[in-house]
Design a protein around this nucleic acid. Structure first.
Length: 362
DNA sequence: CGCAATGATTGAAT
DNA sequence: ATTCAATCATTGCG
């Protein structure tokens, strides 16, 4: 198959049944305006234009396409036509280039960047974070430096920071990949259609702008997260919040079921704190720390001792509750281990007598 | 507002 | 370092 025939095939829809191509350059123009001399040249141009028009419509990754392109590139009229097209484009390009606006630094983006920097999310390293935390603590006007909450805040901040950086890196990588891909594509195509380096540049800048807008979303959501974290941090230390119903429930349960020795160990306190925080995290609430559990037990012990009568009702209530749960557990245990052992001791929890009015405190 | 409940803080004791 | 006891400060209710 010679080159022309191949190109003809590429042109597809154009039917040339009558005028079978002979020896190369006999392609009539679409509107049959044939005749005068220089005709071969015109036909040449029409031909090559057609090829150019169609070649960009075709998928580029076929092996055939390469052949066709190669054929096109080797066409004898190609350089001249190419330069003409470039010239035309240069002239009309002004209008296109006029639309190119130099991007002024987006004030909102600057604001976000500044904040991320100030908050230590996008700053150098850990130093920024702790500095921001210290600044936040100072802004709260609280004289006491509660290291527990402080470290809590810092841990969460660094978590946010890590997520931010990995995401940012991902975007960066994707952007670079995409850019090089597009550039390669354009460079490849610039051999068949007039694409100036400036246009490639413009394309790259467009891509970058798109990706940076995505990045801005990331920055925005990061800022939001930091703000939420910060406000919660400040809230927690500025104002006292009552524990949730469920949290006090859990604490009371422990207290009254260990009434004879209501001094939870460090591990028990941690357990309780975790439990309370879990139940509280279902809704909007404060997370309860170990020291808060200690405070609660300290207060509870002293207040219970001070006026046992006042707490009698509560004590009975929780004693009954634990009794019920214990009974349930026992029943379940019995049902489960009927074959195992007839004398299964009930698991966990005190009997917690209802009449108990003398919890030997201290 | 007044008042009780309640979480947090402080200082002494151990 | 932990606990007690007193006290402070805020919250929630009537």
């Amino acid at each position: 198959m010679d080159e022309q025939a191949r190109i003809m095939q590429a042109l597809g829809g154009v039917s040339l049944a009558g005028h079978s191509v002979q020896g190369g350059m006999a392609l009539p123009p679409p509107h049959g305006h044939d005749g005068t001399d220089g005709d071969g040249r015109k036909q040449d141009i029409g031909d090559i234009l057609h090829q150019i028009m169609t070649i960009t419509d075709q998928s580029l990754d076929e092996a055939q396409a390469k052949h066709r392109k190669h054929g096109l590139n080797c066409h004898r009229m190609k350089p001249a036509l190419f330069s003409v097209l470039c010239e035309i484009k240069e002239k009309t390009g002004l209008s296109i280039r006029g639309a190119q606006e130099e991007d002024p630094p987006d004030p909102q983006l600057m604001r976000l960047d500044n904040m991320l920097l100030a908050e230590g999310v996008s700053g150098p390293e850990k130093g920024g974070g702790s500095a921001a935390a210290a600044a936040a603590a100072a802004a709260a006007g609280s004289p006491t430096d509660n290291s527990i909450e402080h470290s809590d805040y810092r841990a969460k901040l660094s978590q946010i920071r890590q997520i931010y950086h990995t995401e940012l890196e991902k975007y960066e990588q994707a952007c670079n990949e995409f850019t090089t891909h597009v550039m390669n594509l354009l460079r490849e195509q610039s051999r068949t259609r007039p694409i100036s380096p400036k246009e490639i540049e413009r394309m790259v800048s467009i891509i970058h702008r798109k990706f940076s807008s995505i990045q801005m979303q990331l920055k925005q959501s990061t800022c939001e997260a930091v703000m939420i974290l910060r406000s919660r941090f400040l809230d927690a230390r500025r104002k006292r919040r009552n524990f949730s119903k469920q949290a006090t429930e859990i604490l009371n349960e422990y207290f009254y079921s260990h009434l004879s020795n209501p001094y939870p160990s460090e591990e028990a306190k941690e357990e309780l704190a975790k439990k309370c925080s879990i139940t509280v995290s279902q809704g909007v609430g404060t997370t309860i720390t170990v020291s808060q559990v200690s405070n609660w037990f300290g207060n509870k012990r002293i207040r219970y001792k001070k006026n046992i009568g006042k707490f009698q009702e509560e004590a009975n209530l929780y004693a009954a509750k634990t009794a019920v749960t214990a009974a349930h557990a026992a029943a379940a245990a019995v049902q489960n281990s009927q074959t195992n052992s007839p004398t299964t001791p009930n698991s966990g929890g005190y009997p917690a007598p209802c009449y108990q009015s003398d919890g030997r405190i201290q």
